[in-house]
Computed example of a mutant assay.
Amino acid sequence: MATVVEELSAGQSAVLYVVTHEEMDALKVGITSTASKSDRVRAHTRRGWSVSMVLPFAAVEQARRAEKALIGFLRSCGATETVRSEQMPQGGYTETVAFARGAGVTVGQLANVAKVASDIVTATSGGLYRIDCWTREVRELLVEITQHSVTYSQEERKKMRALLIELRDQVEEWLVALDDPPA
């Protein structure tokens, strides 16, 4: 059977899923591409796991980030026990929580955390978020440069001016491209 890492490649859409196993008192967080979702999830359901939640993502990397956030959250809250590898011949035991009921972990709670992770991952994956961050950094840097400009030599101020003009010209090109995107 292909591992999840082998199955997933950039550019694919993916899902984050949670499956539970009553008898083992365990839950598992996983990701898979939407193209192979039924195969990966089926590997778990054939071994007594039940699908409790599926969250779609436009890109594999988004699903991977949400999975890491969800597992990290569980581990940081103390849910560190996993099922044994021999209990999961289909793989994925490191993304499980053993003794889920004893740890107080419910699928409903996990769904809420997963939804928040999904929203944050989706929002921070977009270009607008990165542009907003970059704009703030540039603005802060320009304020700092302006405050210290009196300490710069005439030559340094000329170089800074030339670089800022070059940056302004590049930003103007990007703005034009946004108004009239290439076909």
Rank of each mutant, 00 (worst) to 15 (best):
C77L: 15
G108F: 02
S149C: 14
M1R: 14
L175T: 12
L74D: 00
H148E: 14
Y129K: 11
I131V: 15
Q62V: 02
V83H: 00
Q87K: 04
I165T: 14
L142N: 13
E155S: 11
G30Y: 00
G48E: 05
L55W: 01
G48Y: 07
A177P: 03
I71Y: 04
T106E: 01
S125C: 03
T34G: 12
C133Q: 10
A79Q: 02
Q154T: 11
R157Q: 09
K158I: 02
D132L: 11
E140I: 03
A98K: 12
L175C: 15
S9L: 09
V138D: 10
W174H: 14
F99W: 05
Y152P: 01
K68D: 08
G91K: 02
E173D: 14
V138T: 10
T151K: 09
T82N: 14
R84I: 06
S9F: 10
L74W: 00
H21L: 00
R139Y: 11
E22I: 08
L128V: 12
T106V: 04
H148A: 05
L175M: 15
T122W: 08
I120Q: 11
V143C: 09
T32I: 07
L74E: 01
T20A: 12
P89E: 03
T122C: 05
L70E: 02
Y17K: 03
T80G: 07
A123Q: 03
P181M: 07
Q87Y: 08
T151G: 06
S153L: 04
T82G: 08
E137K: 09
A43S: 11
R139S: 13
P56M: 00
C77H: 11
I71R: 00
Q154N: 11
T3N: 07
S76I: 06
I31V: 15
R161L: 10
Q109C: 15
G102S: 08
V83F: 02
T122P: 02
E86Q: 15
A63Y: 00
W134C: 07
A183D: 12
K115N: 12
A10L: 13
N112C: 11
A66I: 04
L128A: 14
T82C: 12
L55C: 05
S76C: 08
V19N: 09
M88T: 03
T124C: 13
